[in-house]
């Protein structure tokens, strides 16, 4: 398993090197983390993803939308139907028009999209000092470095080095390109209390919420990898079979 992962990484690196996919970045590359969903056999750590959803709900969702997610999708991190209904019903979402033709809000259903903190991008900018908090649905796929990068951002807040000119309203982050990020440090030690008392230092919280964000970016990952293992095994078998038949057929020619 280790060697398979290494081979995959090596092949990917080779290709990336050949074709220069790994575009040059001026910022510090974030350190590699161990992820439950990494590697050929990786699956999501559902408990971590559920804690991550709690962090998203309590912290991130105050500024960041998650347009592509529906409450029904939460079955993918192990919530049952009753839990999903309860989560959905706890938010007020637009439910259409009333008899007077005015838009009305009502409790969400499993078919509702995740509630956005702002009605539109302009409102989001206005409330955030002109910066638009990006939608988080695909954030892990949408950043060079993926999960490691997002983890790096969440844990990379520091005091700026001497001589560094930090602009008004900006924050210093080790791993953000250019180091000046508009988002204030979102996670603090002990900020989110988990039921069951799971560890909640900044690093733990970041790890959990990145697991959740990786899942929202790639909800098909587990099914994909499991199908992939079967497909590759089957094709390897077929390669052996066709090669054997080829040898037999060509035996009389050579």
């Amino acid at each position: 398993m280790r060697s398979v992962r290494r081979a995959t990484v090596a092949a990917a690196l080779l290709l990336a090197g050949l074709f220069g996919i790994a575009a040059a970045q001026e910022s510090v590359p974030p350190p590699k983390q161990e992820w439950s969903f990494g590697g050929v056999f990786g699956t999501y750590d559902l408990a971590a993803a559920q804690r991550g959803f709690q962090i998203y709900s309590e912290v991130c969702s105050n500024c960041h939308s998650m347009r592509l997610m529906y409450y029904r999708d939460l079955s993918g991190i192990g919530l049952n139907e009753a839990q999903i209904k309860a989560v959905a019903a706890s938010v007020q979402v637009p439910v259409g028009l009333n008899d007077q033709g005015e838009p009305v809000n009502g409790p969400g259903t499993p078919a509702s999209r995740f509630k956005s903190p702002f009605p539109n991008d302009l409102a989001a900018r206005a409330a955030n000092n002109g910066a638009l908090p990006p939608d988080l649905s695909l954030i892990v796929n949408a950043r060079e470095g993926g999960a490691d990068y997002v983890y790096g951002i969440l844990t990379g807040y520091q005091d700026p080095p001497e001589n560094f000119k930090l602009q008004e309203g900006m924050n210093y982050n080790e791993y953000f390109p250019g180091h000046q990020i508009a988002m204030p440090r979102p996670l603090q030690d002990g900020q989110v209390e988990f039921a069951g008392g799971a560890p909640n230092a900044t690093a733990d919280e970041a790890h959990d919420v990145v697991t959740f964000l990786a899942w929202t970016s790639n909800p098909e990952l587990v099914e994909r990898k499991q199908m992939g293992i079967r497909a590759v095994l089957f094709l390897t078998l077929m390669t052996g079979l066709t090669y054997a038949v080829k040898r037999k057929i060509w035996a009389e020619v050579h």
Binding site: E144, G228, L235
Partner: peptide, 21 residues
């Protein structure tokens, strides 16, 4: 087999993160 490895295990390797925005 090569095709399947890309599709199932590293589907984003040949793509660009910016296209998820």
């Amino acid at each position: 087999i090569v095709f399947a490895v890309f599709v199932f295990f590293v589907p984003h390797t040949l793509g660009d993160p910016n296209n998820f925005i």
